[in-house]
Design a protein around this nucleic acid. Structure first.
Lengths: 251, 251
DNA sequence: ATAGCTTTGTGTCAATTTTACACTATCCAA
DNA sequence: TTGGATAGTGTAAAATTGACACAAAGCTAT
């Protein structure tokens, strides 16, 4: 919490906040790290919200997004991308929302523009624990989310769409997997993000032809079936590939 | 200027502005509508800037962008898309910039987040005239722009990139052309935006196979060479195409 | 130990798409 | 009528995509 000390002398900008769509992948499906706002809002709107906060006047937007992520999870150096700015004048309207905003020191009456980011974290790097600091955060499968507080559901959908487009162009999916992963896990990840089935053999052929994976000599252990070979993402090979003007995975 | 009357009672938000990258196409190359800030800044930084303004507290971001566009050009119902939010704490630093900001009633010391949009305008719909209201706006070829005021050059590059990605997915290029256009004009437009040469015959084949153009029985007039057939974009056919799940032009 | 369950990992063929490439037709101007 | 400029057109080889089925490997339960 050192960063909070450093920021305490700087002023909060009452008009601009940052919200983070923190994506994870439980090796089966895409998930998002959401905050349960608790009883304070239970009688009114949805309890679940995206983590976010007002920005300080001496930090830029990317820094603010990284700070929100860090304060919640302790993670740094995480893949992060801006989704866009959201801000209808009436985006905050419920009494419960006002109470919640007061509790995080925001000005409940002020017009707030929020800048949304999505981040990709290897889910194993952060296991939520019930602590007061952790604000009851939890990984929720994207497919189960039907509503969120404020305009956060809209933001989530924009983030999903941006991720979907981006993964067709850059191999950012590896940021959601552990260092070593199987082709099947990668396959399921792409299906989750693109939200459509991909033929197993065609997927493997396509990925392997790109030659951006290092095949390890290691196998999965402890699985109740034929163990899979493990792979690593090869950053150097991918850089070589982009030099050729490659910018389309063809999904 | 009725809209200004309506807004006069509402408060400007001193922390959030909107900047518009207004793209045009002169049938040869991509251009942007820029404002010459005049002598006030000539001794210091670049005179050219993107049109923009602070937002009012009772309008949403899209409305603000449309307003900026309308105030400058009088155009309404224009294709418009958000690029993203920009806002380093030190993005405004030059003395000349402070003076300029005062002249548009902005708070020169305040931290300003700007939300950038790009818009696509048929260039023939707006011919700049030297008037005080028009603020010395002019179409400048994108390829000639080497610097802009504030962080506007960075914004321009982000807008170009967004346009490039978007045109691979949706046929938004037609918004830059007159109603009736030739395949060669469309071809040059795609080359300008994608910033790479496209084989003429392959381009024509690809576009025509999509079947989203209506071929008119009309020819170009007054050109000093073989006149081209004219085409119109067919919105209905494109809607049919999207029903099939089509979302990639393959450029 | 073995039978059964589960997931891995592999190849081919047909259809489609992409790429590279050059000449004639038409209109205007001189 | 000629010259200049751009429009408009086809094909063949190569690469990519899409559809599809079965044996191999490890774990578990008996």
């Amino acid at each position: 919490m050192q960063h909070i000390q450093k920021k305490i002398n700087s002023e909060l900008n009452p008009n601009v906040s940052v919200d983070c769509v923190i994506f994870g992948f439980d090796l089966e499906q895409l998930t998002v790290l959401l905050i349960d706002r608790g009883e304070i809002s239970s009688a009114f709107g949805p309890r679940l919200a995206l983590p976010g906060n007002l920005i300080y006047d001496n930090e830029n937007l990317d820094m603010a997004a990284n700070r929100v992520l860090d304060e919640l999870t302790g993670l740094k150096d995480i893949y992060l991308e801006q989704v866009g700015a959201f801000g209808d004048p009436d985006r905050i309207h419920k009494e419960s929302d006002r109470e919640w905003l007061k509790s995080i020191r925001a000005e409940p009456e002020a017009r707030v523009i929020t800048v949304a980011y999505f981040t990709l974290v290897p889910m194993s790097d952060y296991k939520p624990q019930a602590s007061s600091f952790a604000k009851n955060a939890d990984w929720i499968p994207v497919s189960e989310i039907k509503e969120l507080a404020f305009d956060h559901f809209e933001i989530l959908q924009a983030a999903k769409e941006k991720l979907k487009q981006k993964i067709k162009i850059q191999p950012i999916g590896f940021n959601l997997l552990p260092e070593k992963f199987t082709l099947s896990q990668l396959h399921r990840l792409y299906e989750s993000i693109l939200d459509k089935p991909l033929d197993k053999r065609n997927f493997r052929r396509k990925i392997q032809k790109l030659d951006i994976l290092t095949s390890l000599r290691e196998k999965q252990r402890g699985v109740p079936h034929k163990p899979s070979l493990l792979y690593e993402f090869n950053e150097e090979k991918y850089q070589e590939l982009t030099q050729t003007g490659f910018d389309n995975f063809g999904f």
